[in-house]
Design a binder for these strands. Structure first.
Length: 282
DNA sequence: CGTATCTCCTGCAAGC
DNA sequence: TGCTTGCAGGAGATAC
């Protein structure tokens, strides 16, 4: 499931393949993703050049330039949802089931979006990207903007004072901090010794600093490993990530805690699974 | 406004 | 073996 490290891995993979390249054709086989892919987007994309391959939270932001003199810019917003992959392939590679979109480039390669569960998004906007409704309310970006652990911890501490929700829920709230999905929330809480059900306003500033350090190190390490592959994720070259080999609690119910040997528990919070060590996390 | 619940979708696995 | 059922989950929409 693409979370921040998987999206960043994808971003880094496609960047060299498409920067400066012209879109020669766009093929869409399935238009019903999370939102219907707008009619006519193929024609709007054709002829455009990739200017920048960016990211905000779990959104890939592909900046396009259509006509330099007229200053005609647009941004392609891509979200990988639950099962999305975005890969660089040679033109002529046969499309399989769930290969919904091909973007053909001038250098005889193509970018292919595959998304079996179709929770992803593929949208085009011309408004300033920070004002787009999907992005305008996003919270602190923990890795991309190079925030220090002190800044992230202080931010979480401040935000948590007026809230009643659990710390797990706070971490999963993209308006507070972006890119921390279920896997990395569970892992970060384990590393910092905080119980996922703990009320977020009952955690000290000092503990928030520890948590922030855990979040940053977990995300950074995972990006270095190419992300986490549980079942579906593949990077832009079709290769899996390797971070799952060092997941400490996620998906490990009934196994022994690597720190203390206690049995890892699995509980449900906000309709989501949480894993934690009952002895290490309070 | 903050929080909980529902929803989209497909593939896999467990259970009968 | 083959069916049904449950579950996985990012995040917007909706209800309270």
């Amino acid at each position: 499931m693409p979370e921040l490290p998987e999206v960043e891995t994808t971003r880094r993979g496609i960047e060299p393949a498409c920067l400066g390249q012209t879109i020669t054709e766009v093929i869409i086989r399935q238009r019903s993703l999370r939102w219907p892919i707008p009619r006519g987007i193929e024609q709007k994309l054709k002829g455009a050049v990739f200017n920048k391959v960016g990211r905000r939270a779990k959104y890939l932001l592909l900046e396009l330039e259509r006509n330099i003199a007229r200053n005609n810019y647009a941004t392609l917003i891509i979200h990988l949802g639950m099962t999305g992959t975005f890969r660089v392939l040679k033109q002529g590679t046969t499309a399989k089931k769930h290969d919904h979109i091909d973007i053909l480039l001038g250098n005889n390669t193509l970018l292919r979006l595959r998304d079996p569960r179709r929770f992803g998004a593929f949208l085009l906007t011309t408004e300033p990207i920070e004002k787009h409704h999907l992005l305008s309310n996003l919270g602190m970006e923990p890795v991309l903007h190079d925030y220090t652990a002190e800044e992230v911890g202080k931010h979480l501490y401040t935000q948590s004072r007026k809230r009643k929700t659990s710390i797990k829920s706070l971490l999963m709230d993209q308006k507070i901090i972006t890119g921390v999905g279920n896997i990395y929330a569970c892992e970060s809480l384990f590393l910092s010794g905080i119980h996922p059900k703990r009320g977020c306003n009952r955690i000290s500033e000092r503990h928030y600093l520890t948590l922030a350090e855990a979040i940053i190190s977990t995300l950074t390490t995972s990006i270095k490993q190419g992300g986490t592959t549980l079942q579906d994720f593949r990077n832009s070259e079709g290769k899996p990530g390797y971070f799952q080999q060092q997941l400490l609690v996620y998906g490990r119910d009934d196994e022994s805690c690597t720190k203390c040997g206690a049995i890892i528990y699995k509980i449900t919070q906000n309709q989501r699974s949480s894993w934690y060590c009952p002895r290490c996390q309070h």
